[in-house]
């Protein structure tokens, strides 16, 4: 694209956004739009796929192709689309209820099959579109409409989950650090395979203090040459660790520590991709002749 035809943020606006003021989702879709612009993508060859929930409305608000499907099932649709359309950039948008609860099985297998998609998990620690119920990532003791005395169990650690089921790209970022978020998305898109991008996200209405975003030392960073850089304003203000993204043992360790770590936990560029293997199988099959196959059933 030449300079004058260059895509603008306005070009990528679609339907009027209906999220609450102060919602962390704005920052996430802005980063997705910037990714499209800065990576020079053709919006007609981008498909945003989602399930149900506040975050799953994202495809409506980005002027590309998209489908806002049913609860928890974005990955099956993205899988069918990826297997048939290797030419598209596919970005899945999924909340913590959508991804970790109703869609947990698909997430497990999407990661394990290493299907080439960018998966953004918008984690705000509860169900919000249905008006505050506990989700698998709700911190223990947090009160919601279904747990008026506080959530009963420890939250599911999504980074450990993604590492445990064989994630080839596992990163965490935060909606209030847009530079870090955009850089993470760019690395995720560049990665071939299932890129699991966990985003700490604030729900201003039901759970504004899910993460203490105003305090710089509420988050720590993993960084390295191949990893994601540490934003300037955090440098010297919080813990920063040099971490080799090939070191899965250290990745598990940081995933288990407080305060929460952001950055690239793990990347394995050699993991085989299911969609490519399926394509290769088809490409290498000997051309068939239906008449001959029918003849093989001759009596």
């Amino acid at each position: 694209m030449s300079e004058e035809n260059k895509l603008t943020m306005q070009d990528l606006n679609a339907n009027q956004i209906r999220w609450c003021e102060g919602c962390g989702n704005f920052s996430i879709i802005n980063s997705v739009k910037k990714l499209i612009i800065e990576d020079n993508l053709d919006p007609a060859h981008v498909a945003n796929v989602s399930g149900i929930g506040c975050s799953s409305r994202a495809p409506h608000y980005i002027n590309t192709y998209g489908i806002n499907s049913i609860h928890g099932r974005a990955i099956p649709i993205a899988t069918g689309l990826r297997l048939n359309r290797p030419d598209l950039d596919i970005i899945v948008h999924s909340g913590d209820g959508d991804a970790a609860s109703i869609g947990g099985n698909h997430l497990l297998h999407g990661i394990n099959k290493n299907i080439n998609i960018v998966f953004i998990m918008y984690d705000n620690g509860l169900y919000s579109l249905t008006k505050s119920q506990t989700s698998p990532t709700t911190p223990r003791g947090h009160k919601t409409n279904t747990t008026p005395l506080g959530a009963l169990i420890e939250p599911l650690n999504m980074i450990r989950f993604a590492l445990g089921v064989g994630g080839s790209f596992v990163a965490s970022t935060a909606d209030w650090i847009p530079g870090h978020l955009l850089e993470t998305l760019k690395k995720a898109r560049a990665h071939k395979g299932f890129s699991f991008v966990h985003v700490w996200q604030r729900c201003p209405h039901f759970f504004p203090d899910f993460v203490e975003h105003s305090r710089l030392d509420a988050v720590s960073f993993l960084t390295s040459e191949k990893g994601i850089s540490v934003p300037e304003r955090y440098q010297g203000q919080t813990t920063v660790v040099q971490h080799d993204p090939k070191d899965v043992v250290a990745a598990f360790k940081y995933a288990s520590e407080e305060p929460i770590y952001l950055g690239l936990f793990y990347q394995d560029e050699s993991k085989l991709q299911y969609d490519e293997l399926v394509a290769a199988q088809t490409a290498s099959a000997k051309p068939g002749n239906l008449n001959e196959i029918l003849d093989s059933y001759r009596i």
Binding site: I67, S69, P76, T79, L81, L83, L88, N105, H106, L108
Partner: peptide, 16 residues
């Protein structure tokens, strides 16, 4: 991975 994912993928294919 399951019956639901199978039909979802078929819809994804036709969507493409």
């Amino acid at each position: 991975e399951d019956e639901i994912a199978a039909i979802g993928a078929a819809i994804g294919g036709y969507y493409g």
